[in-house]
Amino acid sequence: PDLGLTQLFADPNLIENLKKNPKTSEMMKDPQLVAKLIGYKQNPQAIGQDLFTDPRLMTIMATLMGVDL
């Protein structure tokens, strides 16, 4: 199971919303991170391994779920 990750990354406004959010806007200036996020739309399971190697993803996930870290 993808634990709902498919829906989190399926939002067509995902990148724009993250660019507008004060907690994630600075991160979204990294083209490699943006490319990763776009890739998760097609393969949400890929985030599982990346969560352990890129701490920014935890902040992004929390933001998408509405959790304040």
Rank of each mutant, 00 (worst) to 15 (best):
P1S: 13
P1F: 02
P1N: 11
P1R: 02
P1E: 11
D2M: 07
D2S: 14
L3K: 11
L3Q: 13
L3E: 14
G4L: 15
L5G: 05
L5S: 06
T6N: 14
Q7A: 14
Q7E: 13
Q7P: 06
Q7M: 12
L8R: 07
L8C: 07
F9V: 04
F9M: 07
A10C: 07
D11K: 03
D11T: 04
P12M: 06
P12R: 05
P12E: 09
N13Y: 10
N13G: 08
I15V: 08
E16G: 05
E16T: 07
N17S: 11
N17I: 14
L18T: 00
K19H: 07
K19Q: 11
K20R: 13
K20S: 13
K20A: 13
N21T: 03
N21H: 15
N21R: 03
N21L: 05
P22A: 09
P22M: 04
P22Y: 05
K23R: 13
K23G: 06
T24M: 03
S25Y: 06
S25R: 14
E26M: 08
E26T: 07
E26D: 08
M27P: 01
K29P: 00
K29Y: 04
D30A: 01
D30R: 00
Q32M: 14
L33I: 05
L33R: 00
V34H: 03
V34T: 04
V34R: 04
V34E: 06
A35L: 10
K36A: 08
K36S: 03
K36C: 04
L37R: 00
L37W: 00
G39F: 14
G39A: 13
G39H: 13
K41F: 13
N43F: 09
P44E: 05
P44H: 07
Q45D: 13
I47D: 03
I47F: 15
I47A: 09
I47W: 12
G48Q: 15
Q49M: 12
Q49A: 13
D50W: 02
D50K: 03
L51A: 10
L51Y: 09
L51F: 12
L51N: 04
L51V: 12
L51T: 06
F52Q: 13
F52W: 12
F52D: 08
D54P: 00
D54Y: 02
R56F: 08
R56C: 04
L57V: 10
M58W: 15
M58Y: 13
M58A: 11
T59P: 03
T59D: 05
A62G: 11
A62Y: 10
T63Q: 09
T63R: 03
T63L: 14
T63D: 03
L64W: 02
L64K: 01
M65C: 07
M65H: 07
G66N: 10
G66F: 07
V67P: 11
V67H: 14
V67R: 07
V67Q: 13
D68N: 05
D68F: 01
L69W: 03
L69D: 15
L69M: 13
